[in-house]
Write a protein that binds this DNA or RNA. Sequence first.
DNA 1: CGAGTGTAAAGTGTCAACAATTTAATGTCG
DNA 2: CGACATTAAATTGTTGACACTTTACACTCG
Lengths: 234, 234
Amino acid sequence: MSSSSAAHDVSFLRLTSLPMLLEREIESMILDGRLSIGGRINENQLAATFGVSRGPVREALRSLEALGLVELLPNRGVFIRSLDIAQVVEMYGVRAALFGYAAQLLASRSDAGELARLRTLLDEMTQAAQAHDFDRYYPLNFAFHDFIVEQAGNGVLTAQYRGLVKQLRLYRAGNLMTGNTLELSNEEHARIVAAIEQRDPIAAYQTSFDHVERGKERLLARSVSLARAEERRA
Amino acid sequence: MSSSSAAHDVSFLRLTSLPMLLEREIESMILDGRLSIGGRINENQLAATFGVSRGPVREALRSLEALGLVELLPNRGVFIRSLDIAQVVEMYGVRAALFGYAAQLLASRSDAGELARLRTLLDEMTQAAQAHDFDRYYPLNFAFHDFIVEQAGNGVLTAQYRGLVKQLRLYRAGNLMTGNTLELSNEEHARIVAAIEQRDPIAAYQTSFDHVERGKERLLARSVSLARAEERRA
DNA sequence: CGAGTGTAAAGTGTCAACAATTTAATGTCG
DNA sequence: CGACATTAAATTGTTGACACTTTACACTCG
């Protein structure tokens, strides 16, 4: 035990509760697609599934509303939030600002270990990109961004960023990268890492901000072509 | 009227609910100081005050937790969140990034009317600052920042920024500006307005980011001297 | 007198029932 | 046959009661 000063450590009091548990579970049901986007949630049914009453379920849903994952319409019910492209674009903008800030912070505080880890992630992504192995690239890409945010050392920033990324998962359609997009995207990663290694906060901000903004552009382009296809079909 | 396609407009269905109402009311009780920071909220008592049962109150409190205004400890109760200086510093950092982004956006999209409004606000602040009239300066200062964020035209950004500002009100101690701080702060405002007028997004970002960061520094300095005074007294 | 133990009160957690509203279904009339 | 009113079913909104946990208090013993 870590001794004296923490005289009455009560951290093992119950740390979770039924509504918190339900919140997590319903969240993963949404993000996994077990509850379909835009669809309605039936409180009775959901409560029955978990073998609890509606009270705790309703509390969990209130939390999820504030997190931006569901929408509550009075007397109408709870709906899994669905994002239109305009909202997604706005989110990408804010995400760009937050991610840029993270890189900026990291550029002025990263130690050798963190830099090495960044390099490793980048190298692995380069390999995956050259092999056009999207399934390998995707989790590395996620880890890369999350690592930068996490190591920036600002808990509020981390929470906001992750909340935004979580909400963005409500937009199915665009998360795919096609063909040489992998390599393009990874070149941007290289520029970010270089800026952080050189301890250049301004360059780190700029390259990181631009990286997310370009992601937004790629998404938009894809969205437009999808909409065109939609029209043609009609 | 925009006619046909909006055939069954149901927007006049009930737009609010008891929990939402309670959420707003409890929120203002917190921000007004009618519920003291760090203190505990008694569900029974609160429900009795509003003449409702505990269910809706609990739902409202769940929302407020997600908004970062209260903390829920299982089996212990709900506490008005109290921020330590470290958290406030982190929040200021994120706020700087968001505000900087807002100014950056506004610099590339503002019209003549918005620029005129900014000028007006700046002039009024300058007058108030010269007169050392803090009571007049404060709301103008708030309006200035909020105007820039609002007119940036990104709803997600606006929501995030306002949420952060709301949370920062939980930190009582530092919101005061003393003496010539008013004039210093307003010179920074002038630089922001200039950058936006010149449609220079990069300068707008930089001046705005720095402005909030300087606010953070001023707050920190004040906090340190307060802590010193505290020590001396002990 | 102080530390520790046991008990009562207060408060939170959960539930099931009831009220109010919305939605779906049915039937009626032009 | 289609639009409209009416009724029934399903679903959300709210409540009061009860179970469980924590906290406060009195008591005992060293």
